[in-house]
């Protein structure tokens, strides 16, 4: 299911021009990271994908659905959205009920719901916590509950807003694994992140935004190698990209594997 955005403009009621002409195609099964300084329009852009925001002008098309013609509730069948702060989305008395809420709301039968819940809990390593109240869990695990509750809806497109904020190394590795499993299942994953090392290690395509426009869009190595352009939206290339550059590597590297290969050349 492709995402087609054409000449999207959006102004908040305060008059702030948050998006100034975004045109973009994301194909089914792509893994895309969106980077850029606070206020660049990243969250405003992804909120258009499930109809939470409607374009001031231009169109957003999810498969054959124009977001203007469908309710947010209906868009939720195609686009799942994990909020930055899990506390903005969790409300049930235990993890099992929380994660079942989405698929049940989509009208899946009891058996399907159970299967989706079990899979989502296994993927997020929460299987032993179904009876726990989400608010008795640490912030780290509440984040995983938020991920699970969206994954369980089995949408073709999944959006993560800043998934690694405040997470430790072990949980960032768990989140990276969730993204990998989603990729293997052919899902489209769009992630907003300030964690540029995480971006380099997990995404094949990177979009850099600045002041409501797309600054760069392309293969991760091509985008992350453009240190000077990224600096204009206050993004530093990943640590290993910078190191490769300083060592005079011919090709841009973005993860350990590529760096070590570059070292052998």
């Amino acid at each position: 299911m492709n995402i087609e955005i054409s000449n999207l403009h959006f102004a908040y009621p305060t008059g702030v021009q948050a998006l100034r002409g975004i045109s973009l195609t994301i194909e089914s099964g792509e893994q895309v990271a969106i980077v850029g300084q606070n206020g660049a329009g990243k969250t405003t852009l992804v909120k258009h994908l499930n109809g939470l925001l409607q374009p001031t002008s231009g169109t957003v098309q999810i498969g054959d659905w124009n977001t203007k013609e469908h309710s947010v509730a209906k868009m939720a069948r195609r686009v799942g959205y994990v909020f930055q702060n899990p506390d903005d989305q969790l409300f049930s008395k235990n993890v099992g009920i929380e994660v079942a809420f989405g698929p049940r709301n989509l009208g899946m039968n009891a058996e399907q719901v159970q299967r989706q819940v079990n899979e989502a809990l296994a993927m997020t390593e929460l299987s032993d916590k179904t009876e726990t109240n989400p608010y008795d869990l640490s912030a780290t695990w509440r984040k995983m509950v938020a991920l699970a509750s969206v994954i369980a809806m089995d949408t073709d497109i999944v959006i993560f807003d800043e998934p690694t904020t405040g997470q430790d190394a072990a949980n960032i590795a768990r989140i990276a694994n969730v993204i990998k499993v989603l990729r293997e299942r052919g899902k489209t994953v769009i992630t907003i992140t300030h964690d540029i090392d995480f971006c380099g290690e997990n995404f094949a395509r990177v979009i850099a935004m600045s002041q409501g426009r797309i600054l760069l869009d392309g293969k991760a190595n091509d985008v992350l190698g453009q240190e000077d352009v990224l600096a204009t939206t206050y993004v530093d290339p990943p640590q290993l990209t910078r190191l490769g550059k300083r060592l005079g590597f011919k090709e841009t590297v973005r993860n350990e594997e590529e760096f070590l290969a570059g070292l052998k050349k």
């Binding site: 072990a170 960032i172 090392d197 640590q239 190191l243 070590l260």
Partner: peptide
């Protein structure tokens, strides 16, 4: 112990 360390440290350890 699984502490988050700098990428420079991790990659040098592998190297």
């Amino acid at each position: 112990k699984g502490f988050g360390l700098s990428r420079y440290t991790s990659v040098a350890r592998k190297a």
